[in-house]
Design a protein around this nucleic acid. Structure first.
Lengths: 101, 101
DNA sequence: TCGATATATGAACACATATTCATATTTTCA
DNA sequence: TGAAAATATGAATATGTGTTCATATATCGA
């Protein structure tokens, strides 16, 4: 097994916590396709711009997404391939469970 | 991409939320090795029995663990291999990030 | 520079949730 | 059956967190 101390387990739970919100997981799924600007995220998900900005800050702080300025727009993208990979691993589990019923 | 509607995304976030707590992730890690009884979990993690029972209920309700009675002891085990897989995928990400610093 | 557009931020509020403490429930064994 | 051991549960409390609303900041074009 890999080296896991209490500190690492805490970070791990913090990391998973970020995925544990509907708004954030919807944003993550959207960004799996391609970069999207803040207002476009809000429009596509039917959310207020403020909600999106607040959640993007949480995602940014956790290094799950990274911003890129283009004129007065801000485009957000997933930070690395791991994010989508974890999303898909979880999704596979969910769909597998659903099938089982 | 796989079929994902709003409902599935909600379930997915709920699923990840379970991993998003230090106590629960510690229990999960413990159960990755082998089944453990409630009091043993409490002892090994230095937690109160009540805390462990409460969190086990959450894990049980979310189908992440399953109980097995043996005498007056209850042994808990991970529900399927996916749980450990997701744990490891997340852990790999964390350790990778740490290395990068 | 001024107005418009795009995004970020702060405070307030409502709600969810983890822990604690006390106690109930279940099972075993004498 | 009654006591002890193992686990579960409920209420209370404190803390965390997502959304809302208002407003600040930043950038571009006229």
């Amino acid at each position: 097994m890999q080296n896991v101390n209490l500190d690492t387990l805490f970070e791990l739970s913090e990391f998973f916590r970020i995925f544990g919100d509907t708004t954030r997981i919807r944003i993550i799924q959207l960004l799996m396709e391609h970069d999207v600007s803040v207002n476009d995220i809000a429009d596509m998900l039917g959310l207020e711009q403020s909600v999106v900005s607040h959640q993007l800050r949480i995602l940014r702080t956790a290094n799950l997404v990274k911003p890129r300025r283009e004129g007065r727009k801000m485009f957000y993208a997933l930070d690395d391939e791991h994010i989508g990979e974890i999303f898909n691993t979880g999704l596979t589990h969910i769909l597998h469970k659903k099938k089982g019923k």
